Amino acid sequence: MITKEDVEHVGWLARIEIDEKDADEYASQLNDVLNHFEQLDEVDTENVPPTYHVIDLVNVFREDVARESLTQDKALENTSSSKEGYFKSYRII
């Protein structure tokens, strides 16, 4: 069971100021969450195979193949602003 003191301690560790009223409320809410997990522990999963993902996916990455890159002119073809062969952007200070 999570107590008000536990909530205050975690708040102190996280450098979050929690007043007493909120600490009581958070403790109650966190205990409700833990009670839901206890209900899940009661479910019979004896004959259920473990799953790591509900959809059977395989690696969708493409093969890493070296190929010729874009030329400088081709890379700058769609930009609205370039200068001396480079992308031109706003000054950021």
Results as ranks from 00 to 15, higher is better:
16 I>Q: 03
76 L>G: 02
53 H>L: 06
11 G>Q: 01
36 H>F: 12
53 H>G: 07
37 F>V: 10
82 S>H: 01
51 T>P: 04
63 E>K: 04
32 D>H: 09
52 Y>L: 15
20 E>V: 01
65 V>M: 08
57 L>F: 15
51 T>E: 15
60 V>N: 15
91 R>V: 13
84 E>I: 11
20 E>G: 07
81 S>R: 10
11 G>P: 02
13 L>F: 11
84 E>A: 14
71 T>H: 05
19 D>R: 02
66 A>I: 11
1 M>Y: 08
50 P>H: 05
54 V>Y: 12
90 Y>T: 06
43 V>W: 06
70 L>V: 03
28 S>L: 15
9 H>Q: 15
64 D>T: 14
89 S>H: 13
18 I>T: 03
77 E>G: 00
80 S>C: 09
53 H>E: 12
32 D>F: 09
11 G>F: 01
81 S>P: 01
20 E>T: 07
69 S>D: 14
54 V>R: 11
31 N>M: 07
57 L>A: 15
45 T>W: 12
68 E>S: 11
78 N>L: 04
30 L>W: 06
72 Q>M: 05
20 E>F: 06
40 L>C: 11
17 E>Q: 10
15 R>T: 07
68 E>D: 13
67 R>K: 09
3 T>F: 07
85 G>V: 06
84 E>M: 13
13 L>Q: 10
17 E>G: 13
6 D>N: 05
1 M>N: 08
10 V>C: 01
63 E>Q: 15
69 S>C: 04
8 E>L: 13
67 R>S: 10
38 E>T: 11
74 K>S: 02
37 F>Q: 03
28 S>M: 10
11 G>H: 02
74 K>W: 01
72 Q>F: 01
33 V>I: 15
19 D>F: 05
43 V>L: 14
25 E>K: 07
11 G>K: 03
50 P>T: 09
88 K>W: 09
1 M>H: 14
76 L>S: 00
93 I>M: 12
88 K>Y: 11
59 N>R: 04
23 A>N: 03
5 E>Y: 10
93 I>D: 14
81 S>V: 04
49 P>V: 07
67 R>Y: 06
2 I>K: 01
92 I>C: 13
2 I>Q: 03
19 D>N: 00
63 E>P: 05
75 A>P: 00
38 E>I: 07
8 E>Q: 11
93 I>H: 09
5 E>I: 09
89 S>C: 14
60 V>H: 14
25 E>F: 08
70 L>H: 02
46 E>K: 15
84 E>P: 08
12 W>D: 15
46 E>P: 13
6 D>W: 00
